[in-house]
Simulated assay, not measured.
Amino acid sequence: MIRYSFDPHLIPRIQSGLICQTFRQAQTGHARVGDRIRLTRIGSKDPIIPDPVCLAVEMCELVWTRDIAENYCSLSSVRQAGMPIVHLEKFAISLGYPSFAEFDADLATWFDGPPASGVIISWAPPAPDLVRMAA
């Protein structure tokens, strides 16, 4: 079972169903549609919610604008499953970020250089009764 870890501040939003997807660096070994996945807090193996089923794994292309003089990159556009994301602020919030600016800043430092692509892994929100059982 593939495990995805999250910062503690995201756990209440995952448990409530407000966050049902995550952005991860493109690599082999991600969940596939229909797989059960384990969502945990960073540093723990205990599930945040009972093991949800992966609903979608979609490629996410990131286009960066580089300011060579300032040695800084900023995210200029995002395409998910080949479609341009028009509302970047809503996209970032759906991934658990307070704003697009924070998503941009996090990705610029998250990897060894800004990523050019990744995947969005989505799962079904938990049923309220199951969340109480996992807590």
Rank of each mutant, 00 (worst) to 15 (best):
Y72C: 07
I11Y: 08
G17H: 02
Q21W: 09
A101V: 09
R79A: 09
W110F: 15
I49N: 02
P84K: 04
S44H: 09
S77D: 11
S99Q: 01
P12K: 03
P50V: 12
S16M: 06
G17S: 05
G113M: 06
W64Q: 01
D35H: 10
K90S: 10
I85V: 15
L88G: 00
P115Q: 08
K90W: 11
L39E: 11
R32F: 14
G118V: 07
V53P: 02
R38N: 12
D112M: 12
F23E: 00
R36K: 13
M83E: 15
E58T: 12
W110Y: 15
G118H: 03
D106S: 11
Q25V: 07
H30V: 00
S44F: 13
G17A: 04
R13K: 13
P47A: 07
F103P: 00
I121H: 09
W110H: 11
H87C: 06
I19W: 12
F91N: 01
A31P: 06
A31T: 01
D112C: 04
L107C: 13
T40L: 03
F100P: 06
S122I: 03
E89K: 14
A116W: 15
C60N: 02
H87A: 04
N71Q: 15
F91R: 05
V63L: 08
S74L: 09
R41G: 05
G29L: 05
R41H: 12
G34V: 02
H87F: 14
P115S: 05
R41S: 13
A92S: 02
T22F: 07
A116E: 09
P52A: 09
L39Q: 10
Y72F: 13
L18A: 15
S74A: 09
M83L: 13
P114R: 13
V63S: 11
L39I: 07
S77G: 05
A31E: 08
I48L: 01
E70S: 11
S77L: 01
D51G: 01
D67W: 14
A101R: 09
V119S: 06
E61R: 09
C20K: 14
D104A: 05
